[in-house]
């Protein structure tokens, strides 16, 4: 299977690879996938004043899964929560020229974005309420 140049580039030079502390101020963490399916993505955002100021990922999976999550972190940086919610898996497919068998990698990346946003919102919400973050 031939990979697109962009997939190869993200694979060889992953952007924003790493982790934030889960309990750090303004951090939302999304973890999706399962080891037995062959891919797990962890995507984290750091939010200040409703804007994503930083993003990081770690991915267990094929080259396309790594590239999809790396690209997602690039796109997330600088976006507001509302803008980030608009990122679609089809945008990732198009940008990376993913073949049909690799579309699930882009779906996983979109799920990871949604999970990270939800986690951030839950934490932000719970801070104003009485409960503590998970």
């Amino acid at each position: 299977m031939a990979y697109s140049d962009k997939v190869v580039d993200h694979f060889n030079n992953p952007r924003n690879m790493g982790s934030f502390g889960k309990d750090e101020e303004g951090v939302g963490t999304g973890m999706v996938g399962a080891p037995e399916c062959g891919d797990v993505m962890k995507l984290q955002i750091k939010v200040q004043n409703d804007r994503i100021v930083d993003a990081k990922f770690k991915t267990f999976g094929c080259g396309s899964a790594i590239a999809s999550s790396s690209l997602a972190t690039e796109w997330l940086k600088g976006k507001t929560i509302e803008e980030a919610e608009q990122i679609k898996n089809t945008d990732i497919v198009q940008e990376l020229n993913l073949p049909p068998v690799k579309i699930h990698c882009s779906v996983l990346a979109e799920d990871a974005i949604k999970a990270a946003l939800a986690d951030y919102q839950k934490k932000a919400g719970s801070k104003t309420g009485t409960g503590s973050a998970q």
Partner: peptide, 24 residues
């Protein structure tokens, strides 16, 4: 492995088998 969330979790002492994965 440095890029793998599973490796990171294992290093933190998390038993990967005990994790509830959101299978897709």
């Amino acid at each position: 492995r440095e890029m793998s969330p599973l490796y990171e979790m294992a290093k933190e002492g998390i038993d990967l088998k005990s994790v509830q994965w959101a299978a897709h």
